[in-house]
Design a protein around this nucleic acid. Sequence first.
DNA 1: ACTGCTGACTCAGAAACGTTTGC
DNA 2: AGCAAACGTTTCTGAGTCAGCAG
Length: 617
Amino acid sequence: KPEGKMKEKGKKSKEKSEEEETPGKTRKRKSKEEGEEKNNKKAKKEKKEEEENKWKWWEEEKKEDGVKWTQLEHRGPYFAPLYEPLPDDVQFYYDGKPLKLSLATEEIATFYAKMLDHEYTTKEIFQNNFFNDWRKEMTSKEQKIIKDLDKCDFREIHKYFVDKSEARKALSKEEKQKLKEEADKIQEEYGYCILDGHREKIGNFKTEPPGLFRGRGDHPKMGMLKKRIMPEDVVINCGKDSKIPEPPEGHKWKEVRFDNTVTWLASWTENIQNTLKYIMLNPSSKLKGEKDWQKYEVARRLKDVVHKIRAQYQADWKSKEMKKRQRAVALYFIDKLALRAGNEKEEGETADTVGCCSLRVEHIKLHPKLDGQEHVVEFDFLGKDSIRYYNKVSVEKLVFKNLQLFMKNKDPADDLFDRLNTSILNRHLQSLMDGLSAKVFRTYNASITLQEQLKALTNSEDNVAGKLLSYNRANRAVAILCNHQRSTPKTFEKSMQNLQTKIDAKKQQVEEAQQELKKAEDEFKDTKDAKAEANVEKKKKLLKRLEEQLAKLNVQATDKEENKQIALGTSKLNYLDPRISIAWCKKFGVPIEKIYNKTQREKFAWAIDMADEDFEF
DNA sequence: ACTGCTGACTCAGAAACGTTTGC
DNA sequence: AGCAAACGTTTCTGAGTCAGCAG
């Protein structure tokens, strides 16, 4: 099979390139390699076997509509461990005096105590929500005593957990190994299911442990008590003919059903927002992979009609119907800026965040002229996960005029698109193309941007490191488009400095090597003997190596700086058609391992198997 | 046709964890 | 060689999207 050969080649070239990058580096690495030789053989054999066992579901016929599986068997969720009471010498203090708490009250106290050095616990909403919920679980005796959170002293409990986690870190290698083996055993038992005759990995097979709810951003429910999930809360879903999972001893399930039109294995209702939580499969599974593949196919279909759609919404900017105009401007934002759809949310139940359709007047500012540009819209709002979206965009004159119109006679807190919501918008989109909804534009624009950027930035003359920098830059362009942010890593400044120090040192080495080469060349000129000639060659090699190392460091520094506040992972995992990246790898001889780690390769196995270097999104 | 609500699914960054690197 | 810092990976679970249904 040509595909198989391709893969082998990729692997070999990877090993080779890694050797080249560390020429003659220390015996340590070598001896390590030799020592691993034995295991290597075994590992290779296992790898091969595993590869043959891999389920190539993408080569199979698809199931009829709505049916997700015919066989599903699993062990049910793995429940969070029960609460272990504190030792007697670890005490809670109220108003300066030690107070022995009932078991339930103590457990909740530990949730708070564990978070003591987190910023959350300083927030009033967090404290109030916590205290309210805590008091509900107290005995009436405790309720009479504990009336003021400020008089509660959790510090001893806090210290107990800090010490405990440090003790765990300090365990010996053997003890850690043992713990790991125990965890692996649980993973083996509960972490997999059988789906249509194949063993598939489950994504989250553990129930969420009880604790204090931590929302993102300014969440009105932060600090509330998240209750322990019991088997009696859990609905099991499995195949009719398969073995029904056993509930933990002395317990029963809330319900067992056999619904093969859904993909979840178990579910329960979470008590904070009263919404459902599910146990589902890992991204490497057929069920997830097939859906992922399909998502990109829908986005590729959009590619064929996007010009028509754009022409139409531009025409609609002049529509007589206000509703149509709003729809057309909103769609323009979604297309151009990759905004999310923006469903309405229940006020007071969640953090105040918006997407396109739920934008309010206060979230945009109109500048007829700004920094030499015309018709500038300044966006400033909190989006998903309370991540700030800030952008100044020059828009078409008609869009600008329409926005002025939409904002006329409105308060800052009024909806910008008062005649529009996501269901109107999506119904319209569905009528334009089967399967089209607002989020498809994000997928489409992300993927097409990657493809274009890769084309524009990659230089086939570059070495692998240089090509990877281009890849990262293309990836970064997408992350910026989708506003995928991260907090600047705490150690950023310092590690940047360290890198700079290394660069300076390397520069010096290069200079020295240059001088030495010069010296060697002079000597050769004088003596013309073979030894001197060999020396020249040696120095040349050294210089070349050092220069390469310096170049690599410089590339690293650039990459790091450009990346400090941008999260590449989300787009890589969720928005970029993996076949684009794989085609690029094959075309430019970059090993796939350089851009996708093991987990990612498992998730994208379908794409790795089917994409060749000619793939076009 | 719109409204509200629910269910099922994707997508999101932080934090925990494990491995590698550099001193 | 040994240890801590840095870095990459995995886990966790909250926050969205979107379709379908009842009224």
